[in-house]
Each structure stands twice: as structure tokens, then as C-alpha cells.
Design a protein around this nucleic acid. Structure first.
Lengths: 225, 225
DNA sequence: ATGAAATAATGAGCATACTCATATTTTGCT
DNA sequence: AGCAAAATATGAGTATGCTCATTATTTCAT
């Protein structure tokens, strides 16, 4: 159904120079498309942005767009990839957090994520939750090693593993990471609906949920996860 | 964006007879569309079924279809309404379950649900998980009182409340119901990906998860949910 | 430099969900 | 029955995501 977007098919004869002029131009075009698309998505919303508008504003033909991205949805996915990357990098830079209890870390991650995506609320609403659909590259339990979610799951796994190793929590393993991912999606979903000023209800929910998690996780002992 | 599907607009002058010949015909057409659509969805999948095919097989014009259902997705939603209704009715009929511990009830509900929808796996994969999207009538925290989810949430709430009243679990309230709904969606999502024979991995996950839930819920005490 | 081969860009065209002005049927009243 | 109004059905038309045969550009060996 989908044509794979062609990627970095550099010639075998020229492995030395990492970016020939052709590749460079392609990279520029790709970046331009991405920029324009995100612009339109966040100002007009995902559904009301047409691929024609995107290609027009990016100065390319309609067909060219699909040489770079297989589907309109794919285009949106790159946005989330970027955001995830930012999130992870932020976390690794945030030294004070490293010493905090696990639950604080998790709260901070979700909170930061919401802050990051909040300028794009409409757009997120339209696309993000496709994450749970089987076909989506965003799916949390997708086995596709290229997938965005694997990246997310590994990240969370590591955060959890650290807490496990220090005996802060019982071993929760992959299932724990998966559960948290699901929780995270749930919070985003709630956030999208939250009409309270400053999204305070979401923050309250987040707070309460993590209190519950703290209670649950505090007990040592084997749980048979 | 969506035109509301016209509904039961019987004449004020004729409130006595509950189903005039006209209404009856409409009901029949509606039912026929639903039957044909479900048929096609489950045999050819959601995306590969066109609205033209549906209207053709139902013996109506293409436009007529949209007099009855505002969108193709809407058409699919009716399926889930039916399934939910079946699920609830099944539960209320299942006397032995009423005395079982809460966790067993919850396991049974999810398990039964999976059994029910399993003939329609492809179709479910394409549509069901839109539940989490804000615009969807299926959304768990939709405030639309007509919504399917409210029905589901009320159902779960009641099951939980019963256990609360008997002191089996601490008070978990709406948040508890919401959490379970999210869990349920997560399981369905997992199930859709599960390629193991007889979906045994899903069953194992379900089992483990509910064991964890049992451990967590067993402790009395105030939790500050 | 030159020609051929590889790569990329193009836009007319397609499929399909959905709209809407018009035509048809039904209803209620006399 | 006969008429006007209301309800319903119709299908040509529209918008848009995406395809693909064709054209244009770049690369590389000679």
C-alpha cells in the first residue's frame, strides 16, 4: 500500500564525501517540506491542510511531496519523532532530576511532554492518538525496529531499570514500560479534552495518578509481574 | 462538518401510532445498510470497502447512504454500540459471575469482549482505536451524554461501585473506571498485534495484569485516589 | 565534453468520501 | 380524489490524498 520513502541511496562508488550536492538539495527540500507542513498543520489543523497547499508553499509539484513522504500522516509523524528526541535529550540534560525518586521523574517527563506539544494542540488531537492503531509506526508495541515507539519504550525502560537496580521499585520489566506508555497516551488524551484554565485538571490528574503509583510501587516484595 | 443523521422525526400530529409505514420503511433501510456494511467490513475490511459498494448492495443511491449515516466511520460505530450492548447484557445474565471477586469479573468482561469482536479483527483494527481521539463519539471522556463511552464507563463504574460497597476494594471512583477503560483499550490494542496461536500472549498478559491489580487492590486503607 | 544510465520532478489523472440542487414519494387536509 | 407541503431519494459534482507515465536533471565512465 505504501511506497517506502526513498532514503539516502548514495552511490556505492562515492562513499567518501558524505553529502554530494544532489543529496544536499534533497535534504533541503525535505526540510522545507517539513517546516511548511508543520506550519500549516499547527495553524490550520491537520485535516484542513491539503497536500496541495503544502507542496505549493514548499515550491514543489504535488507529486514530489510523495517522493519524500509516503503519506500525509507520515509527514505528521516526523513531528512527533522530533518532539520525542527533544524530550529525551531534555531529560538527559536535566541533572537535578537524576537523583529524584522515580515517580518524580515520570511526572516530569509527562509534564514536559505536554508543555512541548501544547503549541500544537489541534494538530496533536488529530494525529497523535493514531499511535494506538496497529498500522501506525507510532504504535507502542510495534515490533518495527525503526519505529518511534521502540525508541520511547527503550527510554522509559531504562528509566525504570535504573530504579529497579537501586531497589527503589520491584522489577516491572517490559510490562512496566508498556503500562507507563499506555498511561502516558491516556494522559495526553485527557489533556486534549481538558478545557479547564491552564489545563489544571490534567495536572491534577497527573498528580493524583502518580501518587497512586508511588503508593503501589513503594512496597518491596515479589509481585510476579 | 458533519450533518446530524436525521432521527425519528415523527409528525407531531400523529403521536399515537408509534411506527407509521414511512418510519417502518426507513427503519428497514437503516437496518439493511447496517447489515450490508458490517458484512462488507468484516469480509473486505474497513478501508477496502467503499461507500459505493455499500449503497449498491443495499439497493440505494450513493447519496441516500449519507442521509442515514453522516460518515463511513459513523457506520462502523454502530457496530461497536451493538457489541457493547451485547457485552453488558451478557454480563447481567451471567449469574455465577455476580458472586465472583471483582478481578474475576473484570477479567471476564475483557475476555468476553475479545471473543465477541474476534470475528471482525481487521475491521476492529481499522476503527476501534479511534476511541481515544477527541472528535470521536467513542471517546471515553467525551462529555456527550449520548455517547457510547458514557454507557461503557457507567457500566464499569457500577461494577466497581459494587465492590467498593462491599469493602472489597478501596474507593476508586470515576478515576478507577477511567483507568480500567484505558487498560481495556490497551489490551484490545495488544490483542490486535498478537500473532501468537490462539492469541495466548494476550490472555497471558491479561492474566498477569489482573494479578497485579488484585495485589494492588487487595490492601484496604485510604489511598487518596 | 559526451552519451547513457540513474535519479528526481512533474502534473494530469484516479479513486473515493461526501455534498447539494433537483426529482420523487408520502402525508395530511379538504 | 386532488393538492400543497414535508420528507426522502437521487446521482452528478466536488475536494483531496495519492499514483504513475512522462519529462527533466544529475552523475559517471570514457
Amino acid at each position: 500500500m505504501k511506497r517506502p520513502a526513498p532514503k539516502a541511496s548514495r552511490r556505492a562508488q562515492n562513499p567518501a564525501s558524505d553529502a554530494g550536492p544532489r543529496q544536499k538539495k534533497k535534504d533541503q527540500t525535505r526540510a522545507r517540506i517539513l517546516r511548511v507542513a508543520l506550519d500549516l498543520f499547527s495553524s490550520r489543523g491537520f485535516y484542513r491542510t491539503t497536500t496541495r497547499q503544502i507542496s505549493r508553499k514548499a515550491g514543489i509539484a504535488e507529486g514530489t511531496l510523495f517522493n519524500y513522504f509516503a503519506t500525509k500522516e507520515d509527514l505528521a509523524l516526523y513531528f512527533f519523532e522530533q518532539e520525542l528526541e527533544k524530550l529525551i535529550q531534555w531529560f538527559e540534560r536535566e541533572k537535578p532530576l537524576r537523583k529524584a525518586p522515580l515517580v518524580e521523574k515520570l511526572f516530569a517527563i509527562v509534564h514536559r511532554h505536554l508543555e512541548q506539544i501544547s503549541p500544537f494542540e489541534d494538530f496533536v488531537g488529530a494525529v497523535y492518538l493514531r499511535a494506538l492503531q496497529p498500522a501506525s509506526k507510532l504504535h507502542p508495541i510495534s515490533l518495527d525496529s525503526q519505529s518511534l515507539n521502540l525508541r520511547y519504550l527503550r527510554f522509559i525502560r531504562e528509566v525504570l531499570a535504573e530504579a529497579e537496580n537501586e531497589g527503589e521499585i520491584p522489577p516491572v520489566g517490559d510490562l512496566g514500560a508498556w503500562a507507563f506508555a499506555l498511561f502516558h497516551v491516556g494522559i495526553v488524551s485527557f489533556w486534549l479534552h481538558d478545557a479547564s484554565p491552564g489545563k489544571e485538571r490534567t495536572l491534577a490528574l497527573l498528580d493524583r495518578s502518580l501518587k497512586v503509583a508511588r503508593t503501589i510501587l513503594r512496597r518491596g516484595g515479589d509481585w510476579n509481574w
